[in-house]
Write a protein that binds this DNA or RNA. Structure first.
Lengths: 227, 227
DNA sequence: GTCTATACATAGATAGAC
DNA sequence: GTCTATCTATGTATAGAC
């Protein structure tokens, strides 16, 4: 099984690079034009947003809180987004893009249903480890978002689940897996994957590493799906 | 396996009864004195609170929202609680009391580790089905609560998990179960239990009944823990 | 017991100086 | 580009009539 360190090397996912992507996607809405400055300040803004929101909720985070934590004045903040809703949208959009890319790349890198199942499980756990604040935020705030963004979140949730159920179905037609309901099985796998980033405080306090967790999930799933 | 209908008959859990308990626990803080009236209005207030909060978040629910949805004026609301924090505390407290009672009763009703494991899994799924809005609320809002209440929520989370891990350990010493890490296994079981009430929209849209879900979880868990 | 009216604080957002 | 000062809306909570 791939380790987290190997995974990190493979994906080259720097905070800087993510913010650069966000900048180029939202260049029209961001009033500041000097790329280097934008990237630096966006990183501060996103970090602070995730940190405060994950502690007490996005709605409860005032822009004065954000101003203080990010080190930018309220006026300056509004040079990087035009409303609180737009801020959360930028964050959501970018996290989804990265996640989808990483998962599909890891699935396509290997052959065979069992290998692909292992790949998607491990990749999901590792990417949620690397981007834990984003995953937690995304899960917890989804229901509080404006309607359009809520829809996007649901599509995304079902999308990753379909990656898993497709693999399960493929394995079943190949005679490798045996399942009564691949969709339900995929949902349960997803639940195990999500618990990692939802309860990270618990696993950390028990010194459970993501590799240990991944190993256990793989055992559970394989014992259930394999013929 | 017990059905949901049988479970409901067994626990005699009426909304009315729950609100009566809340009343007697908080008689000092509630200004209205006529029991019948209090119970009726508390039910309206709690229903509306859970419904609005689960749609857009407790913090985003204004007391004007709550006033409109419950049919009570803002002034009247404050006859039943003295602050928004106290309202959420009443709700949390009561749900926890009911849940703990139901789970321990169901565990103590049967003998043997495997039977107890089955009992706690099914009971947890069923009680979270009956009180779904409360479970969802409790999970989603826990991190946004004031410090003292947040602690209580964590204690409660770890408490139910310990019910499971104790059973696992007991089964292991009896030679019925084989596990490398009972605590981690209990955590994974809990994750599966929680997914039921966290994603109920998904399971409902797929016509998965709680009995079907319970059956699948039992299969997964048994295949993993049994020697 | 419940209502309406209102006090007071804090929220998001913007204008204009630098 | 960023700041301070400020506008307006909305929040929680309460007072006092009924």
């Amino acid at each position: 099984m791939q380790t987290l360190a190997e995974f990190k090397n493979l994906i080259h996912l720097s905070k800087r690079q993510i913010c650069e992507e966000i900048f180029s996607e939202n260049a029209d809405k961001i009033k500041v034009k000097k790329p280097e400055r934008v990237v630096k300040n966006l990183a501060k803004i996103f970090d602070a947003t995730l940190s405060i929101s994950n502690a007490k909720g996005f709605q409860a985070m005032s822009l004065r809180d954000l101003s203080e934590a990010s080190g930018l004045s309220m006026g300056a903040l509004y040079s990087y987004f035009t409303s609180k809703d737009e801020l959360v949208h930028m964050i959501q959009e970018q996290g989804r893009r990265v996640t989808t890319r990483v998962l599909t790349e890891h699935i396509e890198a290997v052959q065979g249903a069992l290998e692909q199942l292992r790949a998607v499980i491990v990749a999901h756990l590792y990417i949620s480890e690397v981007l834990q604040p984003w995953f937690y935020f995304s899960y917890m705030e989804a229901k509080n978002l404006p309607k359009k963004q809520r829809k996007e979140a649901i599509v995304s949730e079902l999308g990753t689940e379909k990656l898993i159920s497709d693999i399960l179905i493929q394995g079943q037609t190949q005679g490798i897996f045996r399942l009564t309901d691949p969709e339900l099985s995929a949902a349960l796998v997803k639940a195990l994957l999500q618990d990692w980033y939802l309860k990270r405080w618990k696993y950390r306090s028990r010194d459970i590493s993501v590799e240990t967790y991944a190993g256990t999930v793989l055992e559970w799933v394989e014992r259930f799906v394999l013929v």
